Amino acid sequence: MAADTCRDLLVQDIGRGDHVCLAYDDDAEQRHVLSHYLADGLRQGERVLYFADRNAPDEVLGWLRAVGIDPGPLVSRGQLAVTTADDSYLASGTFDPDTMVAVLRQEVTASLAAGWTGFRVSGEMGWALRGVPGADRLAEYETKVDAVFAEGRSSAICQYDARLFDAGHLHAFDRCHPSAAELRPLYEDAQLRLVPAFRSGRHALRVVGTVDHRSTAPLAAALETLLDRPGDLYVDMAELEFIDLAGVRALAHAADRMAAGRRLHVVHLAPLMAQVVRLVGFDDIPALSVDTAEDPA
């Protein structure tokens, strides 16, 4: 399944039937999402399988201890298994999408037959960059395996480290997933949420709610945080309800501070709001791009 639009899911909302992409560039963010995802499954009586690559299996078990889960008894009774990519995706020395899909389908069936309430799995995908035979078929695998999770008996988070995968790869793999794991907000109150994300494989900021005189400063601070990231920055306004002139000015100021050759793309902005940006002349800033249509990248 190629997802043209990918819905963002809070980690606590990920459950059976979900096939989720996690793109991240911070180890603490990876640990936060995965520790809660794994712990939630274990508490619900699901069988949980983790394929480690950059992290050692003992580190992953440590994530669970940090959120109050003792992994020892769970491993002993077969509810939890943490192995490596070499012993899972690459067990035969090469990567074969059809074989891996069949293995996961068998794991789901066996888990339910053993009395577990469901099955959840997560894998670190950095192994695909090591020149392993068959790694060029990873997108094919992500598309095919979606059918396993769509049956509603299991779920998955596929992890892509944005420090390893380039924007083109991230965009391609994101499109293979119906959902993306939402990262922790940079700011959140009753009116506004500012959520870092990856759009088209590039750093983005989702603006959800209302930006007015009370929330201009948090918007400016969130933009400042993301200015340090490489490449262009996308500000996704699809869930914006209102933005005042001070908020637009914060966007313009951030664009004006972009390093040479970089741009700030305001995407999915309502046409009326985009017209305001143009009327005040902020679209004359070379590093600022305002688009009311689908993200052109």
Rank of each mutant, 00 (worst) to 15 (best):
L279F: 05
D295K: 01
A259P: 08
T225D: 12
Q275M: 11
R262S: 13
G72M: 00
R214Q: 12
D96S: 13
L205Q: 12
C176R: 10
A147Q: 14
D295M: 07
D98G: 08
L80R: 02
D256L: 06
L10G: 14
C6M: 11
H36R: 14
D283M: 06
R229A: 15
M258E: 11
A156T: 07
F119H: 13
G15H: 06
G93N: 07
I243S: 01
Y24R: 03
T5V: 11
G68F: 04
L269K: 09
S76I: 07
V266T: 08
A181N: 10
Q275I: 07
A222G: 04
F173K: 01
G62L: 10
C176H: 02
R105H: 13
A220N: 01
R54D: 14
E239W: 00
V101E: 04
T5A: 04
D53Y: 05
V211E: 01
F95M: 10
G131W: 06
L205K: 09
D25S: 15
M237Y: 05
A39T: 09
P271M: 08
D18H: 15
W63Y: 06
K144T: 08
A197T: 03
E46M: 12
E140L: 08
R31P: 00
A297S: 12
A139W: 01
S35C: 08
Q30T: 04
G115T: 05
A217R: 13
V48G: 03
D291R: 08
T109R: 02
R193V: 14
L264I: 10
S88N: 12
